[in-house]
């Protein structure tokens, strides 16, 4: 069964590399922010798959924390992009 999990991890890694291509080539700064947001969500999936591959339950805790940090970071970047201050 570990061949199946590793092939799933390889497919998700290819998707993350496509996001990295968009981060490098994005014409505006908004494109790069979209790439960072999507790559954060993909890393949540990769961490959870690794957790079930090695049967380690604390890796899913790490996935929850990663989702929370990605959400807060994307909101802060969107506020910065809109040229507003953080207490507005």
């Amino acid at each position: 069964m570990s061949v199946l999990w590793i092939s799933i991890l390889i497919i998700l890694g290819v998707a993350a590399f496509l996001c990295l291509f968009r981060i490098f080539r994005g014409p505006t700064i908004a494109d790069r922010m979209v790439g960072v947001d999507i790559m954060g969500i993909l890393f949540v999936g990769i961490t959870a798959i690794t957790g079930i591959l090695y049967n380690l339950s604390f890796l899913v805790d790490i996935a929850i924390a990663l989702a929370l940090i990605s959400f807060v970071g994307t909101l802060a970047l969107a506020k910065y992009l809109e040229r507003r201050t953080l207490d507005d």
Binding site: A30, D37, F71, R83
Partner: peptide, 21 residues
């Protein structure tokens, strides 16, 4: 469930910010 609740919110904030940008 957490991801399903928060990902649309961040996408909406990002699209509004890029339109204002």
């Amino acid at each position: 469930v957490f991801l399903l609740l928060t990902a649309p919110v961040s996408a909406h904030a990002l699209s509004r910010g890029s339109l204002r940008f």
